[in-house]
Nucleic acid binder design. Sequence first.
RNA 1: CGGGACGUAGCGUAGCUUGGUAGCGCGUCUGAAUGGGGUUCAGAAGGUCGUGAGUUCAAAUCUCACCGUCCCGACCA
Length: 583
Amino acid sequence: MRWTQTFIPTLKETPADAEILSHKLLLRAGLVRKLTGGLYTFLPLGLRALRKIENIVREEMDRAGAIEVAMPCLQPPDIWQQSGRYTTAAEVLYHVLDRARKEWVLGPTHEEVITQLAAFEINSYRQLPKNFYQIGVKFRDEIRPRFGLMRAKEFIMKDAYSFDVSDEAAMVSYRKMYDAYTRIFARCGLRALAVEADTGVIGGNYSHEFMIPAETGENEVVYTESGSYAANVEKATSRGPLTPTPTNDTGTAPEKFPTPGVVTIEALAAPPFNVAAHQQIKTLVYLAEAKPILILLRGDDQLNEAKLIARTGAAQFRPATADEVFAALGAHPGSLGAVAATLRSPGLPVYADLALQGAAGMTTGANEDGFHLRHVNIARDIAVTQWADFRTVQPGELDVASGQPLKSRRAIEVGHVFKLGTKYSEKMNALFLDESGRQHPCVMGCYGIGVTRTLQAVIEQCNDKDGIVWPLPVAPFSVCITPLNVAPNAPAMTLAEELYHHLTRDGVEVLLDNRDERPGVKFKDADLIGIPLRVGIGEKSLAKGEVELKPRGGSLLAVKTGEAAAQVLAWLRAESARFQPPA
RNA sequence: CGGGACGUAGCGUAGCUUGGUAGCGCGUCUGAAUGGGGUUCAGAAGGUCGUGAGUUCAAAUCUCACCGUCCCGACCA
C-alpha cells in the first residue's frame, strides 16, 4: 500500500479527551476516530490491526475444533425473557422499536441465541460435543464508556459456546478453550495471565479471566510470585489477615462507652480510645432485594462485594443509604453494631467474615449515635446467620495453598472462560437423548475475547516514547519502506518501488511512504504508527550501495541493496518465529 | 445514576476574575529556499466562542436551563 493512497491521519498533538496512553496512541497514530462517547470509527490502519487479531483468534478457534457461525445482533426480547436475563441484564440491554412499535434488543452477548439453536438442532448425544463461535459486534449500554476502545457501547467480541453431555466432557471443552486463549494472546505478542474469576451475571460455577498486566487496567489481580496462584481480587482468598484477631475473652459483658463524634475506624484507633483497627468490628448495611442485611468485618478489612453477592445470591443489591441505615438500626453509620441486645429487629440477617471467628474483646458500634461497645465476644453476643469469606485480600497475606506472600497488580481483562453448566440449557430446553434414551440438558460453557479491547491492550503494553511498537503478528503492515526522495526517477524511489513490488509479490504487507515529506516527518510517523521493520532508502547509503533496515525499537542495520529483499524476508521469518507458541 | 472538571478554527490552547476589536502554536492552502529525525521565510484561508433563554446600550466573558465530553464510583470483554 502506498501511503498517499490510503488514509493515515497522524496527529502531532494529543486530543484532550484521551487519558490513557493506548487511547492517545490510537488517535495519534490514526487508527481510530471517535464518533461520540463509546463509539469509534476504525480507520485503515486500525482496521488492519483488528483483522490481524481476528484472524489469529479464528485460526486458534478452528484449531481447537470450534465451529464458526454468525448470529444476529438484532434479537427478539422473548428469548431474553425465557433465560431470565431480560431483567437481570436489563441495564446493559439496548432496546429498539420497529415501525409497528414492536420491541427488539441489540445483543450484548449470544447465549440465548445459540442455546435456542442448540434446542432446535441438537437432539442426540451423538451430535455432541459441539462448540460454536463467532466474531462480531456486541452492544452494551455501558454505564460509563471509558478509555477509547477499552469500554465501549459497541465492540467486537469473539464469543464461543460449548455443548457437552456431561460435566467431565464440559471440562474438556473448557480446557481446550483455555489452551486456545493462551496461544491466542501469545501470538498477539501479549503477556497474558490466566486468573481465577468471579462469574458475575453470566452465571456458572467455574471461570478464568485472561488479564494483561497494566497500570491502567480496571481490574486488580492477586498472585504469587511463582505463578502458582493468580485470581481476580473479587475472587481471591488468602490465609487471612496478617495480624491475628483477638480471641481472649475478658469474661466481661459488653460495656457501652461514650465516643462523641467518632464515626470512623481510624478515629477510634486514635487517642484517646486507642482501639486498634483489627480489634474493631466493622458493621455494614446493604439492601438485598430491598431487605436490609448486616455484614460484619474486622475493622482493618474491606468488604468484597462480589463475594457477598455470590453468597447471598441476591439480584438486587446495594449499600443502604444513611437514612435507610437509621431506619433499620436506629443509629447512623459510624455507630453501628450487630450485638443482639442492641438490635431493634432481631431477625436481621447477619453475615460475618471468617476472620472474625472466635473474636473476643472486640469493640463495635452500640447502635446509638456517639456510643460504642467494648468486651464484645462475637460467639456470645452476636447472632451470626452465616459465616463466610467476605473480605478483600490484602497484598502481603499468604496464599492458601503454598503459603507464599500474595502480590497485587492492576490488569486489563481481555478474555473470559466460563463453565456455565445447565443454567441456559434448562431454561431454553436445549436437551439431548443419551445412549439409553433419557433426556438431559446440555452442559454448556461460554468463552469471550474482547477483540477491540485486545487491540488496545496490545498498544498499552507495546509502546515507547515515540509511539506504538507493534508485535509483528498484529502489525497493520510488516514493513515500511521510506525513500527519502520520492521524485519519480530518483534512485531512492526507483529502488523503493522495486523492493515494494518484490516484497509484495512474496506476500509481505508493505507500506510505501511515498509522501513528499522531509525525512524527519517520515521517520517520526513511521515510529508513531509502529511498523515492525522500516527500510530507509536515501542518497547517503545508496552512495555506498546500501539501504538501511531499522527494526522498530531496535538498531540500524546496513545491507547491500541487492540483498535487501532477502534480508527483509529473513528478518520477518525470524521475528515471526518469536511469537509462535509451542505446538 | 451520584461526585468532580470542562466545552473558543481540523488538533492543542489564551482570553472569562474586572462585559466593549476573538489571539497564539500545530495542521491546511499558495510561493520560495531547504532536503537523513516533526526545516525556514513570506503570504492566505479557516471561528454560529456547545445550544437556548436571561441580565445589559453591549456577553466568549455574568445568570439559568439544556446538550455534549472527560475523570472518580457501581457494570463488564
